[in-house]
Amino acid sequence: MILDDDAEAPPPRRIKLSDQIAEDLCRRIARDRMEPGQRLPNERALMQHYGCAKGTIREALKSLEVQGLVTMQPGPNGGAEIRPVSIDAAALQLRRFLHFRQLDFAQVYAVRRSLEVALGLSIVGRIDDDILQQLARNIDACQAAADAGDLARGRLLELKFHDILCDASDNALLAFMCRFLNSLLRDLVEFRSGSATEHEAFGAHNIDSHRRLVSAFRAEDAGAVEAVMHEHMCCAEHFMRRLDAAFHRDLLSGERA
């Protein structure tokens, strides 16, 4: 249907008062740099400030609770307590955004290739002994999974290796994006199984790459970190895109029906 120039545009959707209040409280939390454990004003104070009923305030606070920004403490001295937003809660919103969109490995690696290299370079010289030990234990666990033929566990552990690298980063945005992409890959790999032979070869490459990365991090060799991570990501992309193609080919043939 084509509207002529004189036709009236539909009126903008009216935003509920509780949603407006929830958004204003979000801005207040950010503006006042409120820390986890601090509390918002009680219901009565919020009712007076916004000039609305108790039900509206409770609806606004419930919205913040669902978003993971506050937790409601019971009792006469209770109220909305600021809580740290977990990576899982933040990633959930992005996952919901992507839920109704086609997502494949090519799209993920178009972003992951550069981000993982940037992450690796950003933590050269910043990885302490605890992180190095976690990485070494992870590699041992990957090898044990490979020896046992537990390919699915191996893939998850390999992604955990990259989560551990995020722990060493002081760039919150970079670490979050890398963790988020890792979570997407976990879902995609579990959904598309692939052949055992290809998984075994890919797992062997990952273990070797992870060992070389740990050595480069220990030596604080930025050039080696960049080169190994880039090669690692290119190999991972090649394997994942083959896995994606095989999955769609099976769908077309009806073998996964």
Rank of each mutant, 00 (worst) to 15 (best):
I21R: 05
L69H: 08
R44E: 14
D250G: 12
D4T: 15
L17H: 11
L181I: 01
P12D: 11
Q102G: 00
A245V: 05
D140S: 04
N138H: 01
N171S: 13
D244M: 02
Q134M: 03
G194W: 12
R44D: 11
R212E: 12
D167K: 02
E59I: 02
D221M: 01
L64Q: 02
D140Q: 12
R14Y: 12
R27F: 05
I57S: 00
R212P: 11
L119K: 04
K160D: 09
N42L: 09
S122I: 02
C234L: 15
D5K: 15
E35A: 08
G75N: 08
H205T: 04
L17W: 03
H210M: 10
G120T: 07
C26K: 13
F247P: 04
S86G: 13
D147F: 06
L3D: 14
T197R: 14
A141L: 05
G79S: 12
V85I: 10
S63H: 14
M34W: 05
L173Q: 14
I2R: 09
P84N: 06
F97T: 09
K62T: 15
Q67H: 07
I57F: 02
E237F: 00
E190R: 03
R31G: 05
E8P: 12
D128K: 06
A201S: 11
H210F: 10
R96Y: 10
S215A: 15
E226A: 14
L165G: 00
F191P: 00
H210D: 10
Q67M: 14
C52Y: 06
L243A: 08
T71I: 13
